[in-house]
Design a protein around this nucleic acid. Structure first.
Ligand code: MN
Ligand code: MN
Ligand code: MN
Ligand code: MN
Lengths: 145, 145
DNA sequence: ACAGAAATGTAGCCAAGGCTATAAATCTGG
DNA sequence: CCAGATTTATAGCCTTGGCTACATTTCTGT
């Protein structure tokens, strides 16, 4: 699941590619959610503490610590022991992209008639599987709606 | 990740619920894809063989074997050693739901302007995060479109 | 200043979903 | 009918993302 892992299976048919793609999207979903959350906390409270990250993600703090370790390993965040977590430039850029995509997905759901609260809930999972092409289609739809 | 696992974390805030929900959806995504695939193969070739399941899912056969073991454990499939895999009634019902949802998602994406092939790819991941409320909203949108 | 509270780190467990390598069973053509 | 090809099973490894339990550090109020 690291960046050097191809994540492509034997790939026997054209059908398999779809599933490989979906698995690849899933492998970055956690990174995306944590990056966005850390960015949220940085804006709201100046810095993102492990406890706050864990509380908002709905996990225990060791789980949050592991996720942050992965973020650091992938060059998306930095932190010193017993201190807050900070996004790198790459991490901040990722957070911005993720937040934008989240918003567009929610807006599109609402535009086609999904209740706002349901849209927020579903978007949290959906957002990680929306390709750039689809995202642009969503934006275009919202623009001419 | 089994059915008796609550999958709800500490749940400190209302924000956390969204992520718990997304994680829960992800934990059944694999079951859903395999169920649908086995049903496809059953219709096309009379029965679903491990080799064919693996090829279409884009994984190696031991991976497919493990997934089938989980399907069996959850009461969605049955199989005897060195023979094909067959869905139970519950498995068949799940496959039908999943296939319908997949179709609706693709149709909605196309309806808002996503190219057909992109829609197929993205839907493979998106489908598992579309709630019943959202699905009905999609159907209503398609009906009045 | 320091004791207790709170936050963080760390070890170790589990299940899931990938993989490779190897063994065993089944199928098939001659 | 049987040898070789194919299919399936199994063992064992890895990473990820959950968890609990416990150790350590930092913070805070008196
Ligand atoms: Mn998300
Ligand atoms: Mn999000
Ligand atoms: Mn799918
Ligand atoms: Mn599908």
């Amino acid at each position: 699941m690291t960046e050097d892992t191809p994540l492509e299976g034997p790939n026997d048919g054209p059908t398999a590619e779809r599933f490989c793609q979906a698995r690849a999207a899933q492998s970055v979903a956690v990174l995306e959610d944590y990056a966005e959350m850390i960015d949220d906390l940085a804006q709201e409270m100046g810095e993102a503490r492990i406890t706050d990250i864990a509380a908002r993600m709905g996990v225990t703090h060791p789980t949050a610590t592991k996720a942050v370790a992965r973020l650091k390993r992938e060059g998306l965040a930095v932190s010193r022991p017993y201190r807050g977590v900070f996004l790198t430039e790459a991490g901040t850029a990722l957070a911005a992209r993720v937040r934008m995509r989240h918003r567009v997905v929610v807006d599109l759901l609402v535009a086609v008639g999904v209740p706002q609260d349901t849209a927020e809930i579903d978007a949290e999972g959906l957002e990680h599987h929306v390709s750039d092409v689809t995202l642009r289609a969503f934006e275009a739809f919202l623009a001419r709606r």
